[in-house]
Design a protein around this nucleic acid. Structure first.
Length: 342
DNA sequence: CTACGCGCTCG
DNA sequence: CGAGCGCGTAG
């Protein structure tokens, strides 16, 4: 069963509906955890979301993908100027309700259904709460609202949302491509860089050119499979290309791993990261059975069982087992903190 | 349309 | 006690 959520997003409503996403910081301004930001990465593909703004629920959304790390959308403009520059981006496919619903009008019905904690609206008055962003709601709350906003009721609407969202919704791939495109334009127009450097930085986006040579000088094998055949290896940024601050960072061989295509995807997407001693860690969001299907799941899922799978002892697999250099650790710390979906 | 208090809830 | 993607009102 999909989980049901409610998001109060008056300030960014128009941008997030139009763009088919939700965005939030990862932490509060003072660095503390925020349960509503944590909800962003708890959301699972297929979950359903009610959009609340200006006292109205006008859209229902379906979560398309797990949240991933992305810069604050530029279209926010001055809104949320104090929010962090990097946060969670959750792809959500939005569908408008036939008729907008004013929860305040339904408060008598909703009151007994609302959660005691983290309720998105006040039980007494039906007014929205500023402190709440993305919050879990019981299914009956979702059903009451959707039934009030559609002629056919929520079951039929769920089916409609689930079906229509397939073809033209956002995906991590598409969003990353757009973000990369925007960065590439800025690089191409950066007159502080000479032409040769600009070309190298742009080629580094695809793991090609000088960046690949630099990485390959440091890393000879895939950290997950142990494969050394260069034809099977992709030069993958540890700190993502789009989130690097400078050209040297984008070209630094210490900011890369040589990975096979599946490993590159898992690492890039934040489903796998590494500790400084070389141990891989797998996201709790990732189905461990899929690791096995990819040929990565051995007897010890927490270490991926790589050496066992290859019939090696840990000592016999120096590339896979070896720790990172200090320069690599700095980038990997960033990956664990900002990219990894814990 | 943005800006600024005023609230309240929760850590 | 203060942070926070709302509410109401002012310009």
């Amino acid at each position: 069963m999909p989980r049901t959520w409610w998001v109060n997003h008056k300030q960014t409503f128009s941008q997030e509906i139009k763009g088919n996403y939700l965005w939030s910081p990862k932490r509060k301004a003072n660095g503390a955890r925020n349960p509503f930001y944590d909800s962003m990465r708890a959301a699972t593909p297929g979950d359903l979301v009610l959009s609340y703004a200006d006292g109205l629920i006008r859209h229902v959304g379906r979560v398309v993908e797990f949240a991933f790390t992305a810069p604050k959308p530029e279209e926010f403009g001055a809104t949320g100027g104090y929010w962090s520059a990097v946060g969670w981006l959750l792809p959500v496919y939005w569908v408008p309700l036939a008729a907008p619903v004013r929860p305040r009008d339904l408060i008598a019905t909703l009151r007994p259904l609302l959660p005691d904690k983290y309720s998105p609206i006040r039980a007494a008055t039906g007014h929205g709460l500023q402190s709440v962003y993305m919050t879990a709601i019981p299914q009956p709350v979702f059903d009451v609202v959707v039934a009030a906003g559609t002629a056919a009721g929520s079951a039929a609407f769920d089916a409609g949302v689930l079906q229509r969202g397939g073809s033209n919704s956002l995906s991590y791939r598409v969003v990353r491509e757009e973000l990369d495109d925007a960065v590439e334009k800025r690089v191409a127009a950066d007159t502080t860089l000479d032409q040769t450097t600009r070309d190298a930085v742009i080629r580094a986006r695809r793991g090609q050119g000088r960046f690949r040579d630099n990485v390959h000088a440091v890393e000879r094998a895939c950290r997950l499979t142990g494969i050394t055949n260069p034809a099977l290896l992709i030069a993958s940024h540890i700190k993502p290309w789009r989130l690097c601050d400078t050209a040297p960072e984008r070209l630094d061989g210490m900011n890369g791993l040589m990975l096979t295509p599946d490993a590159d995807l898992l690492f890039d997407r934040g489903f796998v990261t590494f500790h400084d001693d070389g141990r891989p860690e797998v996201s709790t969001r990732f189905d461990k059975r899929d690791l096995r299907r990819l040929g990565l799941g051995g007897t010890a899922p927490e270490t991926l069982g790589l050496w066992e799978a290859q019939g090696l002892s840990e000592a016999q697999a120096p590339y896979v087992a070896s720790g990172f250099r200090p320069e690599q650790c700095a980038y990997m710390e960033y990956h664990r903190r900002e990219v990894f979906v814990a």
